[in-house]
Amino acid sequence: MRVVMLGYQTWGHRTLQALLDSGHEVVLAVTHPRSDHAYEKIWNDSVADLARDHGVPVLLRNRPDDDLLLALKEAEPDLIVANNWRTWIPPEILALPRHGILNVHDSLLPAYAGFSPLIWALINGEDEVGVTAHMMNADLDAGDIVVQRAIPVGPHDTATDLFHRTVDLIAPIVTEALGLIASGRTDWTPQDRTRASFFHKRSVEDGDIDWTWTAEEIERLVRAQSDPYPNAFTHYRGERVRVLKASVSQGVYGGTPGRVFIREGDGIVIVAGAEARRGRSRGLVIERIRTEDGTDLPATEFFKTMGGYLTRRP
């Protein structure tokens, strides 16, 4: 098959590599220009560089335009494969390749369509995540499923752990999907749209800790914002403090959410949860922090005295 690839960052890079290794003819690669967005500077292996290294023509586009449509028509693809293409694809492009467009998305669709699915899934306490290859239609991440693979989420997994494990699924999933499509199969599995959910892009502000969340929820947020992602953060006495490592307390602590309360084990307990005033909530044990100047410290060295509050604003 003649294949065009639309993609960006490491997800797109892994997809293009799988296409190059597949034996099919990759006739064009389309990718976004590099961005200064905090999340788009992470996992940013270059699709353009990989394509050029293999003699594949490259187009840089932020969104589809008339020039891209013309280039796609001239490429005469049998199939377009997309992964981490960040903008809407118009109907005239959807209808262009005879086999359609195969999209690769790092969630178990129909859940977690949209952006940053691994981070949102970890925050929400999902017990598995995965990767789905599906045929695109007019609705974002809503087309029939061709191949889907899941991996379990462990109790200490970070978003970084899940990234590495799911990105390794891309090549085998793309290879399997290409084989099925090339064989003439079209009997794909429709998504159950009653189970669909759609999430927006993460921004730095989404890591601002809300101390009315339960300790369990905040602990997952900390793991979801692991390095190299922008870390979960809070403010203490006017200074932004990034939380690098935390756990749920053994003890039950009452009071006002955000209160710097007591030492437990290797960390400092912060009162957490909307019901904390009833004295029935676990606290969050902060174990390691990063100051605004980039210094990493044990929490016991940073919080030298008990008392005071962690807040969402300086």
Rank of each mutant, 00 (worst) to 15 (best):
M136H: 03
N62V: 09
R237L: 12
D21S: 14
I286K: 01
K304T: 15
R52C: 07
T132C: 08
R63I: 09
I181Y: 03
N84M: 05
E25C: 10
V3L: 04
H156S: 14
T311V: 11
Q191N: 09
R237C: 07
A29L: 08
P155W: 10
L122A: 03
E92I: 05
V204I: 15
V27M: 11
V167R: 00
R240Y: 11
P90I: 08
E76V: 10
R313K: 13
K245I: 03
W120V: 04
W188N: 04
L244G: 04
D66N: 09
D157G: 04
T10R: 00
D208P: 00
E205R: 09
H32G: 04
T234Y: 05
D293F: 06
R288N: 11
E292L: 11
E287K: 07
T214I: 07
V56Q: 01
T166K: 02
D296N: 13
E292C: 06
P33T: 10
V204A: 04
P152R: 09
V131I: 14
S22A: 12
S247R: 13
R282H: 15
S22Q: 10
L94R: 04
I270W: 00
D144M: 04
P155E: 15
I42D: 08
L6Q: 01
M5K: 03
L162E: 06
E126L: 08
G267F: 01
T87I: 08
A51M: 06
A232D: 07
D168G: 14
P172D: 12
D66I: 09
P172H: 11
G23W: 13
S203F: 13
S35N: 13
L60I: 08
L68E: 11
A38V: 14
L109P: 02
R61G: 04
V26T: 13
Y309I: 08
V56A: 00
R313E: 14
V222P: 00
I209L: 15
A246C: 12
A18L: 05
M136K: 02
V129I: 14
R278F: 15
R63D: 12
M306I: 15
S197P: 09
A95I: 05
F199D: 06
T194K: 10
D141C: 06
G283D: 07
A29Q: 05
W85P: 02
Q191I: 07
I268Q: 02
L108A: 08
D45G: 10
H32R: 08
G273P: 03
G279R: 03
T189I: 15
G251P: 07
S22T: 11
V81S: 02
D144A: 15
G238V: 12
S107F: 00
F199W: 15
R282V: 03
P97S: 06
L178W: 01
L169N: 01
I181Q: 01
L221P: 00
W211Q: 01
P64T: 10
G265K: 07
I151C: 06
A182R: 02
I93R: 00
F198M: 12
I209R: 02
